[in-house]
Amino acid sequence: MMRLRTVASAALILTLAACGGATSDAGESTPSAGAKGTVNLAVNPWVGYESDAAVVTYLLEKKLGYTVEKKELKEEISWQGFETGEVDAILENWGHADLKKTYIEQKKVAVEAGSTGNTGIIGWYVPQWMVDQYPDITDYKNLNKYASLFKTSESKGKGQLLGGDPSYVTNDVALINNLKLDYTVVFSGSEAAIIKAAQQAGAQKKPLLFYFYEPQWLFAQEKFVRIKLPPYTAGCDADPKKVACDYPDYDLDKIVSKKFADANSTAYQLIKNFKWTNDDQNLVSDYLTNQGMSADQAAEKWVNEHEATWKPWIPAGS
């Protein structure tokens, strides 16, 4: 539900009209943490992130007495929010070196707040049944042998690699070229489309080679196996056109706005301390996705059962 702000914004317009131009971060933002105890959390659109947000929100509200405002945003817009003052924290950031450069180094409106403890794995996957049937398929060197299995109406006679969640920079096209694979990338365009295709591939026993990542709640439902690409070594992905190695593991981290960090509130400290495992996150994600719980219910259940994990996050003296 939206909050009622009529009077406030009317007054604001009057004040601003009196003193001239209105800057883009004026007045709009709900006050940053500390002053009135509101924390603005960006919530990026995948369930793993929602699990982080659910637990952090629960702890902030129930244990530290803050009000949390969740903002459902795509990644890039969340980063913009640091600048306009509308976002205090991003809880699960996947790399995004370009955004870090813009907002942390150049604009200096955001700072890193440490790892979430989760490891992000990106790679190419096939459904379990394919591995059962073609055991050597998990080595990229054998992919050309099976290319015809992966032919679709979209792949122009080659094998199809379903990829392209547009939120990530991927190396798939370069990888296929440089590893001389008889495949073509079909851009699915959304995470949901990839998940649906993966589900169908499992249910219908249809071949599918797809770009995917962990932690991901889908792994709680179905088994998928990662293809072994030439191992990652530091710097092997330096030139995006010449990449011929696997994706690195991502240390998923937290980013907060500079203002929020500088205020050094207990909320900031809790977010900074927040750290858990992929299993923890997958558990909460499973509550959310497959057991139909609300964010609060899922967080409460996890918090009740994992006190040892979250206790150290709570700042001393609160």
């Binding site: 604001l12 601003l16 131009g21 209105a22 883009s24």
Partner: peptide, 27 residues
């Protein structure tokens, strides 16, 4: 967007005006 008069006096007031309208309808 925080220095050009176009934004200071145009776009940003527009936004505040729209906000006012939304809040009124909502109320």
């Amino acid at each position: 967007r925080d220095t050009s008069p176009l934004f200071l006096y145009g776009v940003n007031y527009l936004r505040l005006g729209v906000r006012l309208l939304v809040d009124a309808v909502q109320a």
